[in-house]
């Protein structure tokens, strides 16, 4: 992965973090991780994981925490933990027409 791509992924992940950090409660890391699982393809998630392992330059603390979660837990585990904490998973939860 090029430096430019790493920089872009870090920027995008931090943007996501800014939103969830501002939400009430202390579930930001779970919410960020769930968002990344829902919307980022596995290669992008692996790339940002590799960036974290290489020092994680530029990652906000909550983003770094979320990326660590990606490495430690499956997407389903993160989603379940989020639901258990009483939060929806906007990416994963079905739309109204899920039957």
């Amino acid at each position: 992965m090029s430096a430019a791509n790493a920089e872009r992924l870090v920027y995008m992940a931090n943007q996501i973090a800014y939103f969830f950090v501002s939400q009430p409660g202390d579930k930001a890391a779970l919410q960020i991780a769930d968002h990344l699982n829902a919307f980022w393809d596995p290669a992008m998630r692996r790339a940002i994981g590799a960036h974290l392992e290489a020092g994680g330059e530029g990652l906000l603390p909550s983003t770094a925490q979320a990326v660590r979660l990606l490495q430690q837990a499956t997407p389903k585990t993160v989603e379940r933990a989020l639901h258990a904490a009483g939060e929806p998973s906007p990416g994963h939860d079905p739309g109204d027409d899920a039957g």
Partner: peptide, 28 residues
């Protein structure tokens, strides 16, 4: 219908009709 590809039940519906395994991870 806005159902995530990781949703096993939804994916299985499509797999049954389309006759293929669908990737359960989001794409680009």
């Amino acid at each position: 219908g806005y159902r995530h590809v990781a949703d096993d039940a939804a994916r299985e519906m499509f797999e049954a009709v389309w006759g293929v395994d669908i990737d359960h991870e989001p794409g680009l």
